[in-house]
């Protein structure tokens, strides 16, 4: 098992390296001159040259990469043009809302989506199945921000039950923190629930066709236990895989949701950085999100070893 985990850890290293190179090259290989874009339409050549100098764009590309990656490895992502402070520090400030939102959403999703998918699979072909699937298609077709505004309109504007926007740090009171996260995490979870419920259904349906399900029935096992002990236990690996992969969608959703609810997290930082053409920040945020995504999927892979004995031994 240790060997398997070690191999998985080592195999993510090239992916991380490629991501780093891609993120670096993205800025350097654009057809347009980043310095000119940063400087804006009214800049004179001297100003552009100054920016080139500050970005180190006049150095050979390999040297630029080494300088940049050297900094990144020490947690130094450079200085933000826009906020005029260290990007690392900026990210540190913005971490809490994003983490709170993501974790709350995942919690919500797993609690709702997995049972929904199992119920649909169990009632395969009936109206219950069609209902769940119908909601699922609807769920991942409605854009996150449309869901967001509908929820705001209903719960915050019309009913006035919940605050519209903003964030409260957890140390300033858990109640206020949670209250302000209810709508955002509901918003974000819609797409996610739609996906996971659907994939849970597919995985369970597939497993229900397996011979060992027939074996369990031939033993006289009840349908409920067949479903949970045999079907879900075997579908757990594909479901977990999907949850890992949908984290990419979650991250995209975080950006939009934070923007809709003006939560001062990494997503909002990304959008602001893009609008301000704040490249060091953009690079850092993308790198961070991508690394988080890769690492979460690494954790998922490691989790397989607890769910599937075929990997364990």
């Amino acid at each position: 098992m240790a060997g398997y985990i070690l191999r998985r850890v080592l195999s993510t290293l090239p992916v991380l390296a490629i991501v780093a190179v891609l993120v670096f090259l993205m800025l350097r290989l654009t057809p347009s001159d980043p310095a000119a874009i940063i400087a804006g339409d009214y800049a004179n050549p001297q100003q552009i040259e100054l920016i080139r100098e500050r970005l180190g764009l006049n150095e050979p590309i390999l040297k630029q990469f080494i300088i940049w990656i050297g900094g990144v490895l020490q947690g130094d992502f450079g200085e933000s043009f826009f906020y005029k402070k260290q990007v690392a520090e900026l990210i540190g400030e913005r971490l809490e809302p994003t983490l709170s939102l993501s974790l709350l959403t995942i919690l919500l999703v797993v609690m709702i989506a997995v049972p929904l998918g199992v119920i649909a699979a169990h009632n395969h072909g009936t109206w219950i199945d069609r209902l769940v699937m119908g909601f699922s298609v609807l769920g991942f077709s409605i854009p996150v921000f449309v869901v967001g505004y509908i929820l705001i309109y209903v719960f915050a504007v019309t009913l006035d039950w919940l605050p519209v926007q903003g964030y409260q740090r957890i140390r300033d009171g858990v109640g206020g923190w949670l209250l302000r996260l209810i709508l955002p995490s509901m918003t974000l979870s819609v797409v996610f629930i739609a996906f996971i419920a659907r994939m849970t259904r597919t995985s369970v349906l597939e497993v229900l066709n397996e011979d060992y399900i027939r074996t369990a029935r031939a033993k006289g096992q009840t349908e409920m236990k067949v479903l949970v002990r045999h079907a879900l236990a075997n579908a757990a690996v594909p479901i977990l895989t999907i949850i890992g992969l949908t984290v990419a969608i979650l991250i995209g959703g975080v950006v939009v949701t934070e923007s809709v609810y003006t939560l001062p997290g990494l997503g909002l930082l990304t959008v602001d950085a893009v609008l301000a053409r704040d490249y060091p920040t953009i690079q850092a945020v993308i790198l961070l999100f991508s690394f988080a995504y890769v690492l979460i999927n690494l954790l998922v892979d490691v989790a397989y070893t607890f769910l599937d004995p075929r990997i364990r031994y």
Binding site: E210, D211, R214, T215, K219, G220, A233, D308
Partner: peptide
């Protein structure tokens, strides 16, 4: 039927490779 299966009638299948639950 469930009460009869396993107690009064048992069954074995063609594919022993797939007839057992792999995670149990």
């Amino acid at each position: 039927l469930r009460a009869l299966r396993g107690t009064r009638m048992g069954m074995i299948f063609q594919e022993p490779m797939t007839a057992l639950n792999p995670v149990q």
